[in-house]
Computed example of a mutant assay.
Amino acid sequence: MTVSASSGLPGARPVTLITGATGGIGRALAQRLSPHHDLVLSGRPSPGLDALCDELGAAALPLDLTRPETFEAAVAALGPVTYLVHNAGMVELGPVGGQPHEVWARTLMVNTVAPAELTRVLLPRLRAAQGVVVFVNSGAGLRANAGWASYAASKHALRALADALRDEEAPHGVRVTSVYPGRTATEMQRKVRTQEGAEYQPDAFIQPDTVAATIAFALEAPRDATLTDLSVRPGPRP
């Protein structure tokens, strides 16, 4: 399916590009936005991505986040883009003394370099729409714990990217938000719990739709405000 071309006129449906769209948060966000947004859903080429696009009437944008040099050609046929949500990411736990450089290189490529490059190639469209860029960060982007060095380093760098971009693009009317979810009930969290040798109990974590609602709030905030940093933490348990 091709992206429907939004006219950019008042009342036109926004065009929203979501990376990591088949993951827990990405899927929840796509489902939440689909009634009122034209969606471009990005992920690894897969039947899951195709099925989600068919379900929501969205356009698929397969991307390999380890190859940012391919992004410019991949987005060349896109029309306007109003909102860009960087949701994709990867994590491999391990101590500094135990992780080879390949893990560091891949983690930084997927979590930091890829969002930077995708933002760069889409900036003309985002400026034209006076749009919003949302970086889905992590609590690890605010504090690094033992065993989390490579992931936390990539997320600290993502925060720096967002902060610099916010100041650079303010004159163009582009707003930039970082969202810092705590542990969220996703397949990535299941993987993390396995690596930690702990049980995965999804009810103990934030639900993906809660994070999706926070992102949607940032996208749709009135233009007289910029939501710079939003932390989402698990609520009190009875």
Rank of each mutant, 00 (worst) to 15 (best):
A160K: 00
M188N: 07
L39G: 04
D50Y: 08
M1T: 14
G98E: 12
G94Q: 01
A152R: 13
E55K: 06
L158Q: 12
L230D: 02
G147I: 10
A73Y: 04
E168W: 01
F71I: 07
C53S: 04
C53F: 05
S7G: 13
V110E: 00
D38S: 11
T107Q: 01
E196C: 11
G173D: 12
A128E: 06
T228D: 14
L84I: 08
G20C: 03
A185I: 07
A204H: 13
R223E: 14
T16E: 03
E169A: 06
S4I: 14
L123E: 14
P10L: 03
A28P: 13
T2M: 13
V136N: 07
A58P: 04
S6Q: 09
L227R: 00
V134W: 01
Q130H: 11
A140F: 12
A116M: 09
D163M: 14
T210K: 12
V85G: 00
G89A: 09
P222D: 13
P80T: 01
A58W: 08
T82M: 00
S46M: 05
Q99R: 06
A58L: 10
E102V: 10
R190E: 12
L158N: 10
P208N: 04
G182P: 02
S46N: 13
L52F: 05
D163K: 07
R175K: 15
I206F: 04
E169C: 10
A153D: 05
S154K: 07
L17H: 00
G173N: 06
V85F: 11
L17C: 00
G141A: 00
A74G: 02
E102W: 00
T214A: 13
Q201N: 12
V133P: 04
L230W: 05
K155P: 10
A160I: 07
V15E: 09
T16A: 08
K155M: 14
P80H: 03
E220R: 07
G11V: 12
V96A: 09
A114D: 10
M109W: 00
L108W: 02
I215K: 08
A160G: 15
A88Q: 00
A146L: 11
R223Y: 07
A198P: 02
L227I: 15
